[in-house]
Structure formats: C-alpha cells, structure tokens
Design a protein around this nucleic acid. Sequence first.
DNA 1: TTAAAACCATATAGCCACTATAAGGTCAAT
DNA 2: ATTGACCTTATAGTGGCTATATGGTTTTAA
Lengths: 133, 133
Amino acid sequence: MRIGQLARSVGVDTQTIRFYEREGLLPPPDRQDNGYRIYTERHVERLAFIRRCRILELSLAEIHELQRYQGAPHQPCRAINTLLDDHIAQVRSQITDLQVLEKQLVSLRASCNDDREIEACGVLDGLSEGSMQ
Amino acid sequence: MRIGQLARSVGVDTQTIRFYEREGLLPPPDRQDNGYRIYTERHVERLAFIRRCRILELSLAEIHELQRYQGAPHQPCRAINTLLDDHIAQVRSQITDLQVLEKQLVSLRASCNDDREIEACGVLDGLSEGSMQ
DNA sequence: TTAAAACCATATAGCCACTATAAGGTCAAT
DNA sequence: ATTGACCTTATAGTGGCTATATGGTTTTAA
Ligand SMILES: [Zn+2]
Ligand SMILES: [Zn+2]
Ligand SMILES: [Zn+2]
Ligand SMILES: [Zn+2]
C-alpha cells in the first residue's frame, strides 16, 4: 500500500509518517520505480504501535527504547515496566504542578469582580505587585 | 543598571531579557556609547511582571495583551478577568486530560508484574494490541 | 485525448519559550 | 600585558509535528 492509504488506515498525516521514518521509528519501506513508498502490514502494526504510545504521551525517545526491547524478547521486562513507572510518575507530577497553578490562578481571579476600571483591576494588581508565591 | 544586574535582580538569564525585547515585551532600553543596554527601575518592574505572569504559565501573547490593557487604565477590566478565566479553563482541561491519561497508564501498568520475559510483558502487549481506548 | 484532481516526492520554515553556542568587542584588576 | 568578567550580535537546537513551496505521477472524467 502507498503512504496515503497507510496514513488513512492508522489515522495520521502522511507527513507524520515520513517524519517517523526520518527519526528512525519506522523502517524505510521499499520504493516503486517512481520513488513512491510501498508499505506492508508490518508497517501498519508498527505505526499503530507508535500511535498508541503517543496517545499515552510517551516521547519518541521512549518509543524508540520500547522498540529496542521488542528486539530482545527473552530478556526480562523490568526495564519496560520501569519506563512506564517513570512516565506515570512524571504525569502525576505534572498534575500536581497544574493543581498548584490552578489554585494560584483562582485566588488571583477572586481578587477582582467585573465592572471595575483597569486601574483598579485586582487581577492586574496581583500580577504587578510582588504578593505572589 | 546593565543587563547582568537586571538579570540577577529578577532571576532570569540575560538571553531571556534580550529575547523579551525582540518579542516586544520589554521596551528597548537606552544604550551606552559602547552599545551596552542601560536599564531603569521601570524595566525591573516590567520584567518582574512578565516573570510573574510566566510563573502562572500565561503565554507571551497573553502577557502582551495584558500590557496593552495597562495602557488604557480607564477602560473596564472585564477583558482581563475574561483572559484569566479562559486561562483557568485551559489549565483545568489540561488537568482533566492528564487524569484520564494517568488512569490509562496505571491500567496498562497493572497488566504486568516484574520478572517476565519481554515476550510476555503485559505492558508491551497492551501497547501492541488494539485493546486501547 | 486531454485536462483536472488526487496523489506522491523533497526541502524548508514555523510553532512555543526559551537555551546554547560561536565569535567577537569592552572594561577593570592584576 | 594579560586575564577574567562582562557585553554585543547571529545562529541553531529543543519536541513533535504541521504548513508551505515546488514539482513529478497517476487516476479519473469530460
Ligand atoms: Zn515519559
Ligand atoms: Zn479585573
Ligand atoms: Zn493561557
Ligand atoms: Zn512487563
């Protein structure tokens, strides 16, 4: 199949497929005489794997690492589990950071109501004075 | 004061200050005969304002907008409050997204324990098969 | 049969908010 | 006279795409 069909069947843009190839995440496929890329079912699976990883916001580097593990099926899988644990820890830390941020923003917002002049806006005041944490 | 002292007094890199100037967030300061930038207390306040906004993860575009409002002190401040409301909404949406992500990741992680071979790794299996949402 | 539409190719730049590097000019102290 | 700390500009890199430009190829329809 050509790149357009692969793109449609996995739900990505053709540019993204070429990008993954350049980054070494998708093996370079054979070419037709006219230079068009020709993909197989294995490419479909490989691309779908990448996409599922990306939905979970694994980085391309992490996906690369997972692909290397796939090439050594008889090694222990601890490294994979650890990779995921680290990723989960990072997501949790992001959530925590954003929750702190949300509190700060809500508190700032509470210092103003509508119908003031900008001169007296509590939000702008809070940002202008150093009364922030 | 010169750029290094400004940088130290606000806690940013000198490069960042020049970057803000290029982006139109900091007004271009006067120059000494040798070309060195000379800053005033107003620049300190202005830069500190930007930094407080950035800590709240307001974008440079949003900060720019706030600066424009500062120039019109007798207009109603509703636009400012709305800007903040929108930003809060976006932070909340990020939190929600990350919480969904965390659940998916934890569920995937639960499908494996350590001491398996990669061949049998539940995490890799979950990523390889289409049993994901 | 030919002309348009859809597809493919490469190369390059843009997004965001910086950060790093290179190559060089200026100034004070040793 | 030289070191070191400071300043200048210009350029490239980060991540994961996405958009644009330019041109070749294939398919479809008038
Ligand atoms: Zn990760
Ligand atoms: Zn207000
Ligand atoms: Zn925002
Ligand atoms: Zn495992």
